[in-house]
Amino acid sequence: MKARAFDYMRPKCVQEALEAFVRADGDASYIAGGQSLVPALALRLQAPGLLIDIARLDELRGLSVAGGHLRIGATTRHCEILGSDLVREHAPLLARAAPFVAHPAIRNKGTFGGSLALADPASEFPAMALALDAIIEIASVEGSRRVGAGDFFIDLYETALQPGEIITAVYVPLASAKTRTAFDELARRRGDYAIVGAGIDAEMQGGFVERMRIAFLSVGSTPVRVGAVEAALTGRQLTPQAIRQAQDVLGTELDPVGDEHTPPEMRRHLARVLLGRLLGRLEANV
């Protein structure tokens, strides 16, 4: 399991990285944390001629609050998300999901932007970006653009990123006093990719749901928002009956795929169970 030979460069700025990619005529990959890319290279599933290392670019770093958003620099590592007071305060759903991301050593190296760029449907952060309605800032040689998470995830490992583009930061709307969040997943072993997982970001007032976004992981080729379930719950109290109805709606809304361990009906069933459990504890915000 040795990667094919490649060239390596470490540009000094994003612009240099973008230009290097263009010069390589597409035969290049960016590497940040590398926690998914390196195994793919070792298995020779990917073999770019050039690796462009963007892990150390200052422009891509940092957690800060500005303009009603939490800005998460693309190379912010998972362990930084996990340990950040800013994240806990302003994006509590991310703080809830972070301990479920892989294992400690992976979290020390893997990056938030890298996770979104890969868009593994079984990963926690892409789904949570969706649940948070995050905005993804993308740089290319043509300039910078922003894409909502809802438009970002297109298909399996396919995103709005065009070849050569780099995620520079992710902007998450700030939580309010009304924000209630819940996250959980069902994984065979701690840190494994989950059979199913979900996060909820809601605003609640007096026991009523004012707004709710729910995103699932591991139930399709992309992270999945369940709009019909959200609609069914908006404006309502989270009574056992409402939760049951939401579960029924979910059953018709999801169309999960199977794999060697898990048939599709198992995924659908577990998604229902998980949704019920998360809604059951959402108001208590525990």
Binding site: M1, R10, G34, Q35, V38, P39, P104, A105, I106, N108
Partner: peptide
């Protein structure tokens, strides 16, 4: 050699990381 067994853990700037999940050039 794919970051799931933990046998290759080393400290990189005092944090545990998988030595199999990075290239030596990245540790420059």
């Amino acid at each position: 050699e794919m970051g799931v067994c933990g046998a290759c853990l080393v400290l990189l700037d005092d944090r545990p990381v998988h030595a199999c999940l990075m290239f030596a050039v990245q540790a420059d």
